[in-house]
Design a protein around this nucleic acid. Structure first.
Length: 408
RNA sequence: GGGAGAAUGCCCGAGUGGCUAAAGGGGGCGGACUGUAAAUCCGUUGACGACGUCUACGAUGGUUCGAAUCCAUCUUCUCCCA
């Protein structure tokens, strides 16, 4: 079987390794147990986590054993790495709830049968810890001097870092130590922002057990301009269809910058690299084909084939100017609520295309609103039941935002 | 524990008694150009019953005809000393 290290390297996942040659050798020789930690700070995973999930999937396909670690314990502290502000302290109930949701998502991407992958929660061993014992056993191995010098705290050295957060690294290192002992875990992966935490774990295992374990980090998904990808107007690009609809999700990828197409295909899909190369090399208007494939494939992996087809059809129809079908994101408006007619601003607000009525008026004045294909020029224009063809009215805001109102 | 300073719109950041819904930048949104791209350019960016009204410059109270700007108390944060 092909060495997964080469696959990950070729696809551009790998950013830093603790011991490149040894890791390559190890992954080529035996089935390795490795772990990636996910802190349940929100009620859904987002696209940043998805990269890590892809890595686990690639690894599992090549015969290795993923340990998906849910950070029920570490989330009680909050990881300060690479952040400019302190994380909000979360209640244990919320953390547990979010953790359950994470579990369900992992089950979609990994096979947990026959111990081919395991899912654990570090709350199990972190919550019962005794402070004094922990300090003596684990804390003694850490150098504050070294920790402070680490790049990941840099921005926090200016703004302030609490002792609570400062302890995060010890806990993550301890996770690795526990997993090494209990699960024979030899590697830890993570986003590039996890580098310091991962090295800390590698060193702790070496000091405590005298064993060599390894760490590797993966590129964070950034645009060619270095901005974090996966940000939408509403915040993160979530994997949960309730939080980010498959259509929105599809559109996000359909609209990535030319320069990022190849990278996204390599990191977010399982398409063979020859295909990725070919698609990424397309130029001019042709690269739109590659973007369609990217959008469809990623949506398919996350939301399934049907949802991907629906999203694609809706997008194609809307951008082809054919507003005829029901796959467009829509809202229902009762006849009673429409009454003798409502003004355009009401309809825009009702369809959640605008946050305030002022925004709606401004938009109309700037010529950014189309109703049933006609540009709306008067903010006071009133729409009645007769304007709904077959009980439908498609509103278009700008070039890319559509919403259909169904009269019921 | 002692001392110094800061808190402004989504973010950064000017403003130190009326001309301030608050400069400038970033971001967002709309338009032009295009390929549902990037870059660029133009416009816009508190809300609402919209040439007017209301709410806003950490919180509360006060001085004043009038406060983001002055005073008092409080809260939070940063820095220096311990």
């Amino acid at each position: 079987m092909e060495n997964v290290f080469h696959v990950l390297k070729e696809r551009g996942f790998i950013e830093q390794c603790t011991h490149e040659e040894e890791i390559e050798k190890l992954l080529g020789e035996e089935s390795v147990s490795f772990y990636i930690g996910f802190d349940p700070t929100a009620d859904s995973l987002h696209i940043g986590h998805f990269i890590q999930i892809m890595v686990m999937a690639h690894m599992q396909r090549h015969g290795h054993r993923p340990i998906a670690l849910i950070g029920g314990g570490t989330t009680m502290i909050g990881d300060p790495s690479g952040r400019t502000d302190m994380r909000q302290v979360m209640t244990p109930e919320r953390i547990a709830e979010n953790g359950e949701k994470f579990k369900k998502i992992f089950e979609k991407f990994l096979s947990f049968e026959d111990d081919k992958a395991v899912m654990l929660n570090n709350a199990e061993w972190l919550l019962p810890l005794n402070y004094i014992d922990f300090l003596r056993d684990i804390g003694a191995h850490f150098s504050v001097n070294r920790m402070l010098a680490a790049e990941c705290y840099k921005s926090r050295m200016e703004k302030g870092l609490t002792f609570l957060e400062f302890n995060y690294q010890l806990l993550q290192a301890y996770d690795f130590y526990v997993l090494h002992q209990q699960q024979g875990c030899k590697m830890q992966f993570g986003g590039n922002d996890q580098w310091s935490n991962i090295i800390a774990g590698v060193e702790l295992v070496r000091r405590k057990d005298g064993k060599q374990v390894y760490g590797m980090t993966f590129s964070l998904l950034t645009t060619s301009e270095g901005v974090k990808m996966g940000k939408t107007a509403k915040g993160a690009l979530w994997l949960d269809p309730e939080k980010t609809s498959p259509y929105e999700f599809y559109q996000y990828w359909r609209n990535v910058a030319d320069a990022d197409v190849k990278k996204c295909l390599a990191l977010l899909t399982f398409l063979p690299m020859e295909e990725v190369q070919r698609l990424g090399a397309l130029e001019g208007a042709q690269i739109n084909q590659a973007k369609e494939i990217l959008a469809f494939t990623v949506t398919e992996i996350i939301h399934g084939e049907n949802a991907a087809h629906e999203a694609q059809n809706a997008a194609r129809k809307l951008f082809a100017g054919d507003n005829g079908d029901a796959e467009i994101p829509s809202v229902d408006l009762s006849k009673a609520e429409l009454g003798d007619g409502r003004d355009i601003v009401f309809l825009l607000e009702f369809a959640k295309l605008i946050p305030t009525r002022s925004e709606g008026r401004r938009l109309i004045q700037q010529g950014g609103v189309l109703a049933a294909g006609e540009k709306v020029t008067d903010p006071k224009a009133v729409y009645t039941a007769s304007d709904f063809k077959d009980g439908k009215l498609v509103l278009k805001k700008g070039k890319k935002a559509f919403k259909q109102i169904n009269l019921i």
